[in-house]
């Protein structure tokens, strides 16, 4: 099992090269700011080196799969698992192992699927796993914020104790600022994205036991 996950190249500059095993980090920004692409990049960054990808998606597995393919050359079903909570018909994709859940509100179903995919990876000797949860914003549409908060606590704890890397996305323009703060407070680190007046994207990194970085072009 690894001590740290390589994430170099996901963000410009050398601010974020690797993250210790057990880290949970959330990508926060306005809608359409590229949060999901960055999250997928972080998920995919260790794939060539043998890391597994286990992604809980509130969109269809096909969508995640197609998006992941932009970051990874060829997917392998032994190392890519998707928990599809979109309620779709659960089409099995050739190169990924899919678990289908009828609704993002079925938290127990999500946790059983996640544990099942974990076992699937374990049986194949894949012990370094990057977990995606895309997106927290959609969970907040199905469940009250208190339930989402509690679920995320249990879920991040699970990743911490199994030495995984957890990557999450959350919009900050569709929820109350305090709800966003309360939820992001549960993570070890936050990558914030923002639009500038000139239409460029910027990012900064908070948490992870360091001083916050300045806003930099993304």
């Amino acid at each position: 099992m690894t001590d740290a996950y390589d994430v170099s190249g996901a963000l410009p500059g050398g601010d974020l090269d690797e993250l210790p095993a057990g880290t949970n980090i959330v990508v926060v920004g306005p809608s359409m700011s590229g949060k999901q692409a960055l999250a997928l990049e972080l998920l995919a960054a260790g794939y060539e080196d043998g890391d597994g990808i286990l992604c809980i998606s509130t969109e269809s597995a096909e969508k995640v799969y197609t998006d992941l393919e932009r970051h990874v050359d060829s997917l392998d079903r032994d190392r890519v698992g998707i928990v599809d909570t979109s309620g779709g018909d659960g089409t099995d994709l050739l190169d990924a192992t899919i678990e289908s859940i009828s609704s993002p509100g079925d938290l127990t179903g999500i946790s059983v699927s996640m544990a099942k995919l974990f076992r699937h990876f374990e049986d194949r000797g894949v012990s370094d796993i990057r977990y995606g949860l895309i997106s927290i914003s959609t969970l907040l549409q199905y469940l009250d914020s208190s339930k989402v908060f509690r679920f995320l606590h249990v879920y991040t704890k699970r990743i911490e104790e199994t030495g995984g890397l957890g990557i999450y996305t959350l919009s900050n323009d569709s929820h109350d600022q305090q709800v966003v703060n309360t939820i992001t407070g549960q993570f070890d680190g936050v990558i914030e994205l923002r639009d500038t007046d000139s239409g460029e994207m910027e990012f900064r990194v908070r948490g992870l036991g360091r001083r916050p970085t300045a806003w930099e072009p993304f």
Binding site: D106, L107, T108, I110, S111, V112, A115, K147, R150, F151, V154, Y155, R158
Partner: peptide, 11 residues
């Protein structure tokens, strides 16, 4: 883990 999530969901 699954038991804890069930507790959260049903709680």
């Amino acid at each position: 883990f699954v038991s804890a999530v069930r507790e959260v969901e049903d709680g």
